[in-house]
Amino acid sequence: MTTPPKIYSTEAIVLKHTPLGEADYLLTMYTPNRGKTRAVAKGARRVKSRLGGHLEPLMRASLLMARGQNLDVVSQAEALEGFRTVREDLQRVSQALCMAELVDAITPEEQPNYPIYRLFLESLRRLEGDAPPSLMPFFQLHLLEQSGFRPELYRCVECDSTLAPGLHRFAPDRGGTLCVSCHPPGLTILPLSLDTLKVLRFLQREVYNIAARLHLEPGTLLEMERLLGALLRCVLEREVKASRFLHQVSQDDRERAEAAASPANNIKE
């Protein structure tokens, strides 16, 4: 058996940090070659820390790591991408934090998954750019797929029959679509419109550059948000905490947009 080197370098995107002791941070990061990994950043909470700013959540950084007894320790860090536009926009930063929490929740530690790294990084870059509405559902669908939870969107999860157009529902606990003849007991069943089903299939099938061009109706977007949210809750067996704040911000944005569109007729739903 060869002993692993004491010092190694890696690239990483910081998913989150939690205070540790007086001045340290415990970092949860996603790396291209090791998947999700945790490390200690010593002194990173001090104002003059050489590490601090480089290791804020959502930073992509190049790191020099020293192997520790329990956790590895970051000995040097240099930010590669700061995603400043994301950081300085409430809607964008809430989406990015949601994505980071999803990656953290769905991936096991120390299990390399390069497609997930790529997906997360590309999604942050798109969020830094024009951030189209299809980005979040696209990210969620592909994250599920790369983690081995590809949602079924063509057949009934109960009887395996091919779905007939217009005759379908959604069963989040079973990870996909349900025909209208099946009534498995004790299952949460959500309505699923044909438009939304088509959009979900399209986003699942296409690469991002094509998916991004899709025009989405607000109703479809909301339905998709609800279905994918329910699906993720079932897969993760817990609530996605950051999605609550994202909902608050999105709701707020919608109300603002409506108020701006009809200043004389400002009605809250």
Binding site: K48, G53, E56, M59, E78, A79, E81, G82, R84, R87
Partner: peptide, 16 residues
Amino acid sequence: LPVGGDLEYADEVTLS
């Protein structure tokens, strides 16, 4: 930048 800080060690967001 913090007083006593060092440009060399500042991250890109802080620097910009």
